[in-house]
Structure formats: C-alpha cells, structure tokens
C-alpha cells in the first residue's frame, strides 16, 4: 500500500495519477490522519509533502517513521538547499523530489525506492560518500588507539578484557579460565587502571571499538 500525504488536493491528484497501478493508494490531508494510517495500513511507501501543516521538518518526519519503521518515506517539496535535503536523508528518508514532479517520473521514483534504491541527487550523493569516508577514518583512528592501549595489557588481562567485551560476568570468566572470581577482579582492577576506565561497560565499549579510549582523539558522530 502507498500512502500519499499532502494538504493540497492538486498534489494528491497528480501524485495518484503517477503511481496508479503500483499498489493500493490511500490519501491523508493532515498530520493526524497520516499518523493513524501509518499504524493502520502500514504502507510500504509514504509520499510526504514537506509542507504538510504541523509536520515540523526532520523532527516530525522522524516521529512518523517511528510509528512504522518499515515504511519507506519519499519527501516531495519545493526546491531545497543541499543542507536541508541532506538533513532529511539523515532522518532515514529514502528519496526526495520536487512536489511538481511529472507523474511518469514520480512512478520511476516510487519504483526505485520500492526496489530498495535511494533516490538522491548526484550532488548529494557526494556528501553521502564523504560522510562514509569520514566515519571510516574515525573508526580506524579509534581502532588504532584501542590497539595501542590493549597492547599494554598482559596476555591474561587482555583475555579477561575481551571476555568482558563479550558481555561475560566475573563468575563466567572465572569458570571459563579456571581461576577464582577474586583473581578475575584483581586482573580487572589492573585493566581499569591501565585503560583509565571506571567500569566494565566502558571497558566493553572500548574493547568492541565502539568508544575511543580516554585521552585519545574523540570523534563525534
């Protein structure tokens, strides 16, 4: 099912003309109705007018997506700056196009998104790739910093830190390594000291590479 959402009847008629035959179509003309239909009919696609009253931009879109995460959202709007359009994609929308798009072209957009593709302008896809490069570089930095820190641990300490990273309790670790819980605690105290962390959750995050060690370059996502 495809849900069309706009307060403009002209928009709804034109969009409907473009996607007729692809799937059963439902229309909403206000935000409350969109919310209700997302839960009720669970559409595979939502064509959403960015000018829908009370939508409240990316925040509102995020709220709608939470109602049914499976629904793929395509935004239709007037001309947007790269920054605004990119902020929409960052909420998880799968496509953006102009509200006055030709019906035939809209059909292409919907079909592409239905097939798991992303409908994004080429100039924005450059942003997307740059972000991927940046994230990878940051992850590699964290990985390197973690590697350097973990190299300071003894073999046994490293073994225990890894098991903590896997979510094991002191009791489980003691049983697995055939040592006492008291010994596990003693090793962990030393691990915490060497890595400058206060608790096992932070240790687990560091071991998993999800968090930069204390004092290393911190990276914001």
């Amino acid at each position: 099912m495809i849900l069309l959402a706009s307060s403009s009847q002209d928009n709804l008629s034109r969009w409907e003309q473009g996607i007729r035959g692809l799937a059963p179509i439902f229309c909403s003309t206000n935000l409350d109705s969109v919310r209700g239909e997302l839960v009720r009919i669970k559409p595979i696609i939502l064509l959403l007018d960015l000018d829908l009253p009370k939508l409240d931009g990316p925040n509102g879109i995020l709220g709608l997506m939470k109602l049914n995460p499976e629904t793929r959202v395509i935004i239709l709007s007037g001309t947007l700056s790269d920054e605004i359009e990119w902020s929409l994609f960052r909420t998880g929308v799968r496509g953006c196009c102009r509200g006055d798009i030709e019906p035939e072209q809209l059909q292409n957009v919907v079909q592409a998104v239905q097939q798991g593709e992303l409908w994004i302008r080429r100039t924005l896809s450059w942003h997307l790739l740059n972000e991927l490069v940046m994230i990878t570089q940051e992850k590699n930095k964290i990985k390197q910093a973690v590697g350097e820190l973990l190299a300071n641990l003894t073999r046994r300490e490293y073994e225990i830190a890894t098991l903590v990273g896997n979510g094991e309790s002191n009791k489980q670790i003691a049983r697995r390594l055939d040592i006492t819980e008291r010994t596990v605690k003693a090793h962990l105290t030393e691990v915490f000291r060497k890595l400058d962390v206060a608790d096992r959750l932070k240790l687990a995050l560091i071991v998993k590479g999800s968090m930069p060690p204390h004092g290393s370059t911190s990276v914001g996502h």
Binding site: F89, R90, G92, R94, A112, Q115, G116, E117, L118, W119, I120, R122, T123, S125, W126, L128, L129, E131, L132, I135
Partner: peptide, 19 residues
C-alpha cells in the same frame, strides 16, 4: 565534476552504513 558513480542500490546501502 566531483560527483560519484555508483548505483542507486549501492547508495542505499551506503546510507544504511552512515545512519
């Protein structure tokens, strides 16, 4: 021109990675 050349499907997967 400074743009990239990948399929829309690949873009979708990259977006998933980024998000």
């Amino acid at each position: 021109r400074g743009e990239i050349w990948v399929t829309r499907k690949m873009l979708s997967k990259i977006m998933d990675k980024v998000l």
